[in-house]
């Protein structure tokens, strides 16, 4: 919180606690998350009733895209964090010597 803004307005420095934005209030974030979870569930429910016209057979399976999207991202993050990062991460001055 100590970083000074580069571009100081004519207005007096803003006290951060006074100017809470929309997403600084936990109840707003919770509300947003609840809307998001509802959408996710709805999208799955829709998949029960609507059979997709697809080129590959598995595209029509229930929840294929949902499961694939979820699993793909979990694998992506896990591999990036636990496999790739230990292999390639170096200090910021790695090339500076």
């Amino acid at each position: 919180m100590s970083q000074l803004p580069i571009d100081i307005d004519e207005k007096p420095p803003i006290d951060i606690d006074e100017e809470l934005g929309m997403f600084d209030k936990p109840e707003n974030v919770k509300r947003l998350l609840r809307i998001f979870y509802t959408c996710v569930v709805l999208l799955l429910v829709v998949d029960i009733f609507y059979h997709k016209h697809a080129i590959f057979a598995w595209e029509g399976y229930f929840g294929f895209y949902a499961v694939y999207g979820f699993v793909a991202c979990v694998i992506l993050v896990i591999v990036a964090k636990y496999v790739l990062r230990p292999m390639v991460m170096r200090k910021e001055d790695h090339y500076d010597d």
Binding site: L33, F36, Y37, C39, V40, L43, L44, V46, D47, Y50, K52, A54, E59, G63, Y65, A66, V67, Y68, G69, F70, A72, C73, V74, V77
Partner: peptide, 15 residues
């Protein structure tokens, strides 16, 4: 529908 499901569940994974 397929694309929306893919993206929303990716977002779910992120969250």
């Amino acid at each position: 529908l397929a694309q929306t499901q893919l993206l929303f569940f990716s977002a779910l994974a992120f969250t």
